[in-house]
Amino acid sequence: MIIPILRLGKILLTSIQQELTDADVLQLQSDLLRKVSEIEALGVIIDITALEVVDSFMARVINDTAGMARLLGAEIVICGVQPYVAMSLVEMGRDLIGADCVFNLDQGLKLLEARIAVRGDAILSLEGDEYARNDRP
């Protein structure tokens, strides 16, 4: 199964719309990282609103993906964790998800913009591909 990855300027957005097999999850992880590196994305949003189960495997892949994206230079946020998913995750073990979470895409974009602004190495433009770099002395 191919999960679409949308591009908004220097941000990548992917929305998981159905339950995924382990192979699908790992495929998405590598597609996402390849895309991050290809366009030098500054931020990634993964929308998991439709996921009814997040188990320890999924939690690990989410954490790993966040860590890998950061290594490449992108910020990452998870959005749309369902309440029952949150309950099960915390009951299983605290701190299973190490990435930052927000309610919705709108907040996700705002958080990424703020993060990227703090980094100060680039100015984000959602309109197109152009973005300006602050030339450091």
Binding site: E52, V53, P83, Y84, M87
Partner: peptide
């Protein structure tokens, strides 16, 4: 909530 607990448990054990 319980359906999700059960589905999560099954996911762990079958994996």
């Amino acid at each position: 909530a319980d359906q999700t607990r059960l589905a999560t448990a099954v996911s762990e054990l079958t994996r």
